[in-house]
Design a protein around this nucleic acid. Sequence first.
DNA 1: AAGTGGTCTAGACCACTAA
DNA 2: TAGTGGTCTAGACCACTTT
Lengths: 254, 254
Amino acid sequence: MAKQTPRYHAIADDLRNQINRGELTPGRKLPTEEELTTHYAVSRNTVRLALGRLTEEGLLVSAQGRGSFVRERYEPAVWNWSVLESRSVHEANHTAGDQWASQIAGNGQTPHQEVKVSIRRPPAEVARQLNLDSATALTVVRERVRYVDREPYALADSYFPEALVRDTPLMLPEDVSAPGGVLASAGLIQVRFSDEITVRMPTRDEIERLVLPASTPVAVHMRTGYDKDGQPLRVMITTLPGDRHVIRYDVSAD
Amino acid sequence: MAKQTPRYHAIADDLRNQINRGELTPGRKLPTEEELTTHYAVSRNTVRLALGRLTEEGLLVSAQGRGSFVRERYEPAVWNWSVLESRSVHEANHTAGDQWASQIAGNGQTPHQEVKVSIRRPPAEVARQLNLDSATALTVVRERVRYVDREPYALADSYFPEALVRDTPLMLPEDVSAPGGVLASAGLIQVRFSDEITVRMPTRDEIERLVLPASTPVAVHMRTGYDKDGQPLRVMITTLPGDRHVIRYDVSAD
DNA sequence: AAGTGGTCTAGACCACTAA
DNA sequence: TAGTGGTCTAGACCACTTT
């Protein structure tokens, strides 16, 4: 009843301990696969299994032709969703338009985003939130890629019922900057949001668009905005890579 | 300038398309690795690379001796953190003690949790939130594993400054059920919470304790509770597997 | 050109599950 | 006992980066 731990588990454990003890610090290069092969006296495939295990845990990244490295942490962007679209905060700060861009700029970083507008049938999940029939209804979709210092930080797709925003500035592909955001520019006031956050692995498409390292999970933040009559006006789905984001909320206990 | 897509990418793409088109439905067994080997005319290692790729995406699970299967989705537990520890909701529902258990029981499911209490030096992150000196301060730690229908659903670790809760029922290992939760039973009232959510891959320890399938990311929810004077009373760190949780918030746009 | 990780092969034996 | 995935070997060539 002795060892049945696979060798590549043991090798991964050994390297992980070195990282946790600080003998291998973030950014440092690991020994080459050939060196590990001779050091542990196993085949190269076994070494690669061990490295793959650590990569899955988010501890390593590898680059073809250069080597494997202890993964470095991003400085995470903290987004406070309790105030991100708050009207009073807007007024207090005299910030027009995109509250997100203001938060980033306030950090001394450079925000920018690419916007694409189209009219489409909404995904089932979105149709449900907007009380629309997903088979027939149309939505105006604003797809944005948000960058901080030229690096992609998030995907933000907004869906508006087409009937609500017909012939408004919302249809323009430009970055609409009216106080209160794009919806207010169409005369629609959100008084309440319902947010749902899920966590999953990214799709291949998201990995490409956000240039995600291996084993980087994403948070999917879905915000539905309602007017004072409880009618849903908008669904915004934000895809936030886990390695560069913190989601924040302030909650009263009353 | 022709194909340089690796074969195992192409095989993974093919299988992924079959899943997305619904030809392979959740729970269904894939062909055996040997069948895939002959079908795609590649070596078994290449087949395994392709399956590994899909496993990383969270689309497959495999079981030794049985086969590989299209991953099934859990029915996610929705936790509304805007009201999870709200005093008025407690009173309106006449729910005593653990609001979490009440939410689960209200779903017709069976909640239960294992509690372990100890006194320890807090992690640096927790010490910072509690305005404590991490080198000298002590915290009372309540570590819980939360189960729904006997399956582990979350880890919830609470940290209290030891000086605040000395000689209170909090030190008892039992599941303290006083209105307003364990803190109120010690005469401490939280009026405000600050929540931070991060997303990452689980540690080996978390994988074991929560029995996580491969490539299941977790959300780490850190809630700091403050009294009316702004003094931090507690930090609760909840580890939520992405495949069985939805985090919810209700936000006012004022 | 040399170094390094990425892809791929062909085969062997082990560990677990189900018939 | 047969079937299936898990571990492991030994070696080859390719693609990318750096010198």
